[in-house]
Design a binder for these strands. Structure first.
Lengths: 349, 349
DNA sequence: GGTCGCCTCTGAATCGATTTAGTTAGGGGC
DNA sequence: GCCCCTAACTAAATCGATTCAGAGGCGACC
């Protein structure tokens, strides 16, 4: 019954005494053969346990695999546990699913520095974030569509979020109530890796190297407009958007003597803001009386809790949907810029 | 320079005046040809923009694709936003990455009821959770390894968590302080879909149909051992492990008059427990004085917050690692049962 | 000097499908 | 009865690689 090797289309054709073309058509183009023959073929296929054309052979012959690869700048382990990346993937998966495609996950931080060979199996690529090594993109088969998310690949389609105005908006909201001492916690903003206070000597990355630079520009514009000296606002930096990495930096901030501790912290991500919130609560600080906190991203974790995080929401799911539609050719592959929405929670009313 | 079509291995061989075998060996088996020839081939490949053997053709010929598929019982959209599933994927990705494999995401809840044809491209399958339609598993190429996670496929390897003892342990912890009124919030436990109170008429699913049944058995054993009448404990049920679905059910519980509202809620998942926590806090209930809450899973969101959730941790990342190692043949493909760890937080000290 | 073995390299079969061009049979129109 | 058209089916080329069996050359050993 179940032989060790799977039966092939050719063998099935021989069993039936028909050509391989007819069997192929029975599965792919029902209008190309008579109803009776088709039924006969499908019945025999079921009987012999033939599960349909082999994907490897089919993809070689047709040149298409029905697979779209998502190439993530961060490691898969990190990305899968990051709410923003998960939402993006979720939006991508939704559209791919609806159009009979599947999702292959690739990371720019593999064990070795090269793209795995299996990458070239995909029909198209969605690239999320700036790769650690730009040469990785050279390995992608150039004749397949590529869509960049949250950064740019020259000459390719892209989906972006309007970071500067979003950051400006939330900072304006926060600065309506003048803080005694504001502070900013950045994410991967410095040229040299830095987990802690950003000193005057450190150079910052440009907006083409990190999206948080655009957010900082928005913050600065808001400070300026409120007559505050942005350059005097203390800044910290974290290299990774995780509890583990953020915790020591934030503890350093919260453990400052009362007269130095900020009473307003603008954070570059919800993950950072939530970590601030947790650690502040554990120290018995009153939120928002003793400390006001803002985030960025609008992840679910910040909203389905009490107090709710004040933040600005980017629709990462929609970002994924658009990228997926572009890569499938369902939508013109042009640069798209998404807007954001201010969410006023209880951490900074 | 860059023609529209990619150059093939055969064309590269012709350019160089060598056989295709040598070019193939240059990329795959460096010991099979002289150093000089190999360098000459690689140099010419670079010059002509040849990016290495095509994955489609290679996988057809070798029979292996270096791709492992993860088949998820839930939709991808749900799974990617579920912390437990994400941790599992994360563990899988970690091992696959380290061994040069990539990850293909498939869902048992596709648009149509059949497995996408591209599934047969994978070298092996990790199946997570009970499929909505069991026939989906028949579509999987049977000669490739399959590993079941959190359920069983007859005759296949599996990775399980020891649910009953885990649930027993946390219930025992909670019952050390006798509650006035305990309650249990279940997850997809009833035969008929039900979001709300479980009445006496409803039949429960067996442990082979849902993992939460084993957890309930553990709870019941603990009640028995503490001389409490488990059958008298009110139970609720939710059909999906999300804020949206849980919220109305939990509001119904918390809005009960004081003398009926439970002061101990045992929840089948951390997601449920965290939703209880949020809604209780918004109502001004004191945790744990007015209401003690326990979860199940040990997701990060429950621990990196204040108050910390009392729960029992299953190591989903490790579960993923083991499944991946089994599917790659790095570990014997035998049934594995993982133990859990009681985490005592502030929601039920 | 002959033989053996090793190192390089090549020719050709093969993986399992899809698809083009073409053949056959049958029916309708005149 | 003839011609043309369509429907149904087939033969064979092809997609782009891998790999087995074998050929040729060279040095070493007896």
């Amino acid at each position: 019954m179940s032989s060790s090797r799977r039966i092939t289309l050719k063998e099935l054709a021989q069993h039936l005494g028909v050509s391989t073309a007819s069997v192929s058509n029975a599965f792919n183009r029902p209008d190309q053969l008579s109803h009776d023959l088709r039924e006969r073929i499908l019945a025999e296929a079921r009987r012999l346990g033939y599960r349909g054309p082999d994907a490897k052979a089919r993809s070689l012959r047709t040149g298409r695999s029905q697979i779209v690869a998502v190439l993530l700048a961060e490691s898969l382990t990190y990305s899968l546990n990051d709410a923003v990346a998960s939402e993006l993937l979720s939006g991508i998966a939704e559209v791919l699913d609806a159009h009979g495609h599947t999702l292959l996950l690739l990371s720019g931080r593999q064990a070795n520095d090269r793209m795995p060979g299996s990458a070239s199996i995909a029909d198209g690529f969605i690239v999320y974030g700036l790769m650690p090594s730009p040469s990785l993109l050279d390995d992608l088969p150039s004749q397949h569509p590529q869509v960049a998310v949250d950064f740019d690949i020259s000459g390719q389609a892209s989906v972006h979020v309007d970071n500067e105005p979003a950051a400006h908006a939330i900072a304006c909201h926060a600065l309506r109530t003048p803080p005694h001492r504001a502070g900013i916690i950045n994410l991967r903003l410095t040229e040299q890796a830095c987990n802690g206070r950003i000193g005057p000597g450190q150079t910052l990355l440009s907006a083409s190297r990190t999206i948080t630079r655009a957010r900082l520009d928005g913050f600065y514009r808001a400070f300026d407009e409120h007559g505050l000296d942005a350059a005097a606002v203390p800044m910290w930096n974290v290299e990774e958007n995780t509890h583990e990495v953020c915790t020591p930096v934030i503890e350093g901030i919260l453990d400052l003597p009362d007269e130095e501790r900020p009473d307003l912290l603008l954070c570059m991500s919800d993950r950072i803001a939530l970590t601030v919130l947790t650690l502040a609560e554990r120290r018995g600080l009153r939120i928002p009386e003793d400390l006001r906190i803002t985030g960025f991203d609008g992840i679910a974790e910040g909203q389905y809790r009490s107090p709710r995080l004040t933040t600005v929401r980017q629709d990462s799911v929609e970002k994924g949907r658009i990228a997926a539609r572009m890569v499938l050719g369902l939508e013109p592959a042009t640069p798209r810029l998404l807007t954001t929405e201010l969410l006023i929670g209880e951490t900074c009313p």
